[in-house]
Design a protein around this nucleic acid. Structure first.
Lengths: 338, 338
DNA sequence: TTTGGCACTCGGACCGGTCGAGTGCCAGGG
DNA sequence: CCCTGGCACTCGACCGGTCCGAGTGCCAAA
């Protein structure tokens, strides 16, 4: 459709605009890039690009800036994901290697992403629904009070208090604990409900009520905690975008406080393949001049959660995508090892 | 020192400036407040107040704005903490009452504070050092791998993986678990080290290594996790302060990401009494035009953690202090009940 | 001690002119 | 047919000057 050279012009416009934050004109373009043609030619190409909706001018007789559609084309066809430099890789490794537990991994990942991309980083905790059970523990805190502790293969721990309908003996407790674990350890959370549904029947009448209660709390935990947790960081990077400031930053900060919104943003990403949402594609008012770069990560082949960055549509896509991908991969490795 | 009327003038200046965000002049003052004197008199008073360092003018022939010292005087002598309105109180109660666990309480508290004060809210999780032990649990995940779970009276749960030097039998494990709990349950975290130091001796030689390891992890957890956790919210409120924007907001966002800095800010507050740090009193560059209002809260008489808000020195101190105090009290009640 | 008057200052808004980057269009040349 | 150089035009940014008004400090009088 568009000639090779016109694509080249678009690429040049995107690169220059991302670098300078100023509308870029035909003359400046020919000076900074070896396009091999004169400004006049570039002007014609620009006119075509504008006609097609890839670029626009803020006001008459100013340079052009890419539209969302322009960025989209750039990301899809023109941009190669930029691999990180050696030192950057090493920094990732050494920084993440010293994490001590899951919280720490997530916290470090957020900081890392924010620093590498100089943007706002968002990391989702490994999701329960795609995890498997490592261990279920029942503690007796009081005669009729138990605590349920659930440990996932990704190291996440959830706990719940349980008030029992009747006192529950230590032997019954040990029995339940053992049977529960033998059935669910190593299984996926989604499979747990059917695996345990007949458990109460195998207990004596006195204990059935309590066993049922425990199981219902367990299942409730699985469902409730599917509502995923997030960690964000690097919000100070929002201030790097000058002029039209409060207008831009405000809705972004608000969106960042709404977990629901964030989860939706990340969630739209297809499993494990990198997703880039540009400007209006986000379909959340306030984020219309914002792009989201997200990717799934996981301890095995399958993605257990997502991470990504949020930044202005005018961002360094190749670099950002490279950083996001690299971090996601290494976090996956870390999780697999632990 | 300062006459009654001059104090009144200062109060009027602070109130007007907080409301309008604009330097306030003598004429406007006499119009808005019934001071009973003419602008000229007010001018004289202002000259004195400026001489004493309570107010300043941004440029010659502009109105006056309060200095940090002026705000300090206002807070100490002139401002009455403004109690919340009935509906506000009810809102607090109903919003916090529906919290389901500690995380939820903290999360809701942050949102509440941010909404009430329209500023950035910071809530510290109940501190471990002032908590007591509700339960210690040891789980055997693998022959030589244990998990330590620590439950506090405030409902906080910490867990740690332990790699044992040698396999540890179930009976030994049960034994250790029982002895550990009998010694530390109900005791303060700070007392735990001496309560358990002689435990290894009472075990057989084979197990002593493991017991020591477990204890060292336990103690480590107590120390490490004394490094307290925080939750913040309402950062979008930072955008409410117009003009000199990026310069102001940037360092604040940066500081908010540094837990250490925040903890220091809250930490400076004396136990349970409300503390207000104004501008330069914060002694952290970047927060010099920022004030911190903090107060301790706790389930009993004693404060187990702090909460507060961070905002511009130009803030509504009476209202903010009222909201902070009210929220802290009610959170304390909630914790005491649970 | 308060008050009204007065001269002075200074920042902000407004206005008009200039400058330059950038555009669109067109005619000529490979 | 496409590229190129030229040309007229547009429009925002910048600069300097003027005006206005809010606010001040000082002073003499009540």
């Amino acid at each position: 459709m568009l000639s090779e050279r016109r694509l080249e012009v678009l690429r040049a416009i995107v690169q220059d605009y991302v670098g300078t934050e100023e509308p870029v004109g035909s003359k400046a373009l020919t000076e900074r890039h070896r396009l091999g043609v004169s400004p006049a030619t570039v002007r014609n190409d620009m006119a075509v690009l504008e006609e097609e909706g890839f670029i626009a001018q803020p006001h008459t007789s100013a340079g052009r800036i890419p539209t969302d559609k322009g960025y989209r084309l750039f990301v899809d066809k023109l941009a190669a994901v930029k691999p990180l430099s050696g030192p950057e890789r090493r920094a990732i490794h050494s920084f993440l290697d010293s994490a001590v537990d899951l919280d720490d991994v997530v916290a470090r990942t957020v900081r890392l992403l924010a620093q590498l991309t100089r943007q706002v980083a968002v990391v989702q905790y490994p999701s329960l629904t795609r995890s498997t059970v490592r261990h279920v523990e029942l503690l007796s805190l009081a005669p009729a009070r138990l605590m349920l502790v659930l440990i996932t293969d990704t190291g996440r721990v959830e706990q719940r208090m349980i008030d029992c309908p009747a006192p529950f003996g230590e032997t019954s407790l040990a029995d339940l604990r053992a049977r529960l674990n033998s059935r669910v350890v190593g299984r996926r959370f989604t499979d747990v409900p059917q695996l345990v549904q007949d458990l109460p029947e195998s207990f004596e009448a006195d204990d059935r009520g309590t066993v049922s209660t425990v199981l219902s709390v367990l299942l409730e935990t699985l469902v409730e905690e599917t509502e995923e947790r997030l960690m964000i960081g690097g919000t100070a990077n929002l201030t790097r975008f000058g002029h039209d400031f409060p207008l831009t930053i405000r809705p972004v900060l608000e969106a960042l406080e709404e977990q629901v919104v964030l989860l939706k943003l990340l969630g739209e990403a297809k499993d494990s393949s990198m997703t880039v949402r540009i400007g209006h594609e986000n379909a959340h008012e306030g984020l219309t001049s914002t792009s989201v770069v997200a990717v799934g990560y996981g301890s095995g082949d399958e993605a257990v959660a997502k991470l990504g960055v949020v930044g202005p549509t005018r961002m360094d896509y190749p670099g950002t995508m490279g950083a996001v991908r690299a971090v996601a991969r290494y976090v996956g490795q870390i999780l697999a090892e632990s």
